[in-house]
């Protein structure tokens, strides 16, 4: 048996040692400066909106790195990294530690333009719930109202069929995405394809593809192809506000390319970039935007928010009225 075990042991030892030789050691580290440098470099290599936001990233490194040293605590490290990320003014850029998550929180920097109770109590007390949608008639049946609270929420084509059949005889639909913080981009064309009978190019995407802040891929098209089934081609008023973020900003920007759609309310929160994700040497994770959303003229303003076609504000002093909703009804009339 020795003849078997000796070579077996030799082979096992040699292979195990080879693995340690051919790969560099694990780079796990709790050193604050190592973690700072790693995050700064990843952002420098891949973040997509330095130019739009006019950020001097080298200056940011000098400023924030000087606030750390080898003995900085985890809490101090988190605060410094979070502050550096916040200079991006981007809610797609966050730091995730076991004890806290950083967020720029765009939605609370402007007034809210939505109050669920106002809608429910004073306009539609018996609203229907179909899957993720809340909906009802307004203005004596002449207007349909559909509320979609999150693009994270999945829905079926049958549910969309049901909604559009119910409101097929209305003059217009109000599609409310205020305070919709985004979610799956695939749900954006899934809704929009119901509102057109022709193919619509609604925007473009570009993604970082090189180390210079201006290195981007070729434009990728965002095209809405019409649904082969029940559609709604009357006027659609989309309600948005600063809480309409990420996929909802994509949705809002796309409405500009639809002749039967009107965007109303406040400028959206933005979040035009696709966030990627990564991990620091200390195990914390992060995400930040690596792409840009462009309008049909190739402009990237959507990152800072899509302005509405009709600006209307919600007056929080009188919670019996939703001024944005009433303006939308008037627009359809």
């Amino acid at each position: 048996m020795k003849r078997i075990f000796i070579p077996l042991m030799v082979i096992t030892i040699v292979f195990s040692s080879c693995e340690k030789i051919v790969f560099k050691p694990d780079q796990a580290s709790s050193d604050p400066l190592t973690n700072f440098d790693y995050l700064w470099e990843e952002l420098d290599k891949k973040y997509s909106y330095f130019e739009l936001k006019n950020l001097d990233w080298n200056k940011a490194r000098d400023y924030y790195r000087s606030r750390l040293n080898a003995n900085s605590t985890e809490e101090e490290l988190f605060d410094v990294l979070a502050a550096m990320i916040d200079t991006l003014r981007d809610d797609h850029s966050n730091l995730f530690s076991p004890f806290n998550v950083s967020s720029y929180n765009i939605a609370i920097r402007k007034p809210a333009n939505f109050n669920w109770r106002t809608l429910n109590e004073y306009y539609m007390p018996n609203m229907w719930s179909t899957g993720v949608f809340s909906h009802d008639f307004l203005d004596s049946g002449r207007v349909g109202y559909i509320r979609y609270g999150s693009f994270m929420s999945e829905f079926t084509e049958e549910q969309m069929d049901f909604l559009l059949k119910r409101y097929k005889d209305t003059k217009g639909i109000i599609f409310d995405v205020r305070e919709n913080g985004g979610g799956s981009v695939f749900n954006v064309p899934k809704i929009l394809k119901r509102f057109t009978q022709t193919e619509v190019t609604a925007g473009y995407f570009i993604t970082r593809n090189g180390p210079a802040h201006s290195d981007f891929s070729e434009r990728e098209n965002f095209i809405v192809t019409p649904y082969d089934g029940i559609k709604y081609l009357n006027k659609v008023v989309v309600l948005c506000d600063r809480g309409s973020y990420s996929a909802t900003t994509l949705f809002s920007l796309a409405t500009k390319a639809f002749p039967n759609m009107v965007l109303m309310g406040d400028t959206t929160g933005g979040g035009g970039g696709l966030p990627n994700g990564g991990q620091l040497p200390n195990g914390w994770t992060y995400r930040f935007s690596v792409s840009q959303l462009l309008d049909l003229n190739g402009k990237n303003f959507a990152e800072d928010g899509v302005p509405p076609d009709i600006q209307v504000s919600f007056n929080g002093n009188d919670l019996t009225r939703d001024e944005i909703l009433e303006r939308a009804i008037a627009e359809i009339k």
Partner: peptide, 23 residues
Amino acid sequence: GYAFAYEGYLTSNTSPLLWILNN
């Protein structure tokens, strides 16, 4: 690709799996 996540060509019929593999 370069940034791992990639915002590729998107239509009403895009498969999420193919979209992930886009780049």
